[in-house]
Amino acid sequence: MIEKERKANSNRKNTISLAEADIGSIFYVHSIEGNAVECHRLRELGFCEKAEVVKIAHGAMTVCLVCGSKVGLNKLLAKRIFVTSAKKDSAI
């Protein structure tokens, strides 16, 4: 179990969760954590690997633009979506 977590952590190097990402920036989806049902629904909504995501707002909810539509996520879920910056000179 610990080994699995360590492996997942090393895979997520240079990534941040969508909850921590800056507003107004463009990101690529890196990976999603959580149970299989939740992950699959997210993928079908467009949150699959390398998909482009624009973060619009956060606070009571995280608002982002994915596949051309605006999607709201609660913090719990936004923390499970890991993204990388679309720009090389980004702070990530």
Partner: peptide, 11 residues
């Protein structure tokens, strides 16, 4: 467990 909330936000 608590489930997540995900909704498409209408314009």
């Amino acid at each position: 467990k608590q489930s997540f909330l995900l909704l498409e936000l209408p314009p």
